[in-house]
Amino acid sequence: MPNAKRTPAGEALSTLIPDLFRLNSLLFTSGDRLVAGLGLTSARWQILGAIVAAERPQPVAWLARDLGAARQNVQRIVNDLERDGLVAFETNPHHRRAQLVVLTAKGRQSFDAAMRLQLPWVNGLADGLSMKDLETVSRVVTVLRGRLESGEEPDERT
């Protein structure tokens, strides 16, 4: 395809993608610093958040799906959280091998403490950004994520 060229939108997105990778890395690094005093990392905090956000206890595979993460990585972190008393495993009445992950009281306290630290941090980070811009970014990220999750993205050979 010697004559193939990016569309203007394709070019803009291609330029944006490295910035998104860098932003993701910076968010994790900043989150690690923010919650380090609580014995958490961004990854642990993210999993606790997924457990809190779920309507009911879920197995690791479902948490991984909701996070867009590899099941094995989530399993390793959930095992660490369980070892530290932040989560517990319960019997899953629908699948004998896929235990349900539940937050313990200690896990809830850790998550709530992390969210208290996050409040001034996120407000400061958002300072000066317009709601219109944030809503636009949110819509774009949601569409891109949806396309990637559904396999809707075009074949790289087309």
Rank of each mutant, 00 (worst) to 15 (best):
P2F: 01
P2W: 00
P2C: 02
N3P: 04
A4Y: 02
K5W: 00
T7R: 02
P8K: 00
P8C: 03
A12T: 14
L16T: 08
L16K: 02
I17L: 15
P18Y: 02
P18F: 02
P18D: 03
L20K: 01
L20W: 06
L20H: 00
R22D: 13
L23T: 04
S25C: 04
S25L: 09
F28I: 06
T29W: 00
S30V: 06
D32P: 01
R33L: 06
A36G: 07
G37M: 07
G37L: 05
L38P: 05
G39H: 12
G39V: 14
S42W: 00
A43E: 07
R44Q: 13
W45C: 07
W45K: 00
Q46D: 08
Q46C: 07
G49S: 09
A50F: 11
V52A: 14
P57S: 02
Q58V: 12
V60W: 08
W62T: 14
L63W: 03
A64L: 10
R65P: 01
D66V: 12
L67Q: 03
A70Y: 14
Q72H: 05
N73L: 10
V74I: 14
Q75W: 04
R76I: 14
I77E: 01
L81I: 13
L81P: 13
L81N: 06
L81A: 04
R83C: 09
R83W: 05
G85P: 15
V87P: 11
V87N: 09
F89V: 11
F89L: 14
E90T: 13
N92F: 13
H95A: 09
H95P: 02
H95K: 08
R96W: 07
R97F: 11
Q99G: 11
L100S: 05
V101H: 00
T104G: 04
A105W: 08
K106D: 15
S110V: 13
S110L: 11
S110D: 11
D112R: 00
D112H: 02
A114T: 05
M115D: 09
L117N: 02
Q118L: 14
V122A: 13
N123Y: 05
D127G: 05
G128M: 12
G128H: 07
M131R: 15
M131N: 15
L134G: 00
L134D: 00
E135G: 05
R139W: 04
V141R: 06
T142D: 13
T142N: 10
T142H: 12
V143Y: 07
G146F: 07
G146A: 06
S150I: 07
G151N: 07
E152N: 03
D155C: 09
R157M: 11
R157P: 04
T158I: 12
T158W: 15
T158F: 15
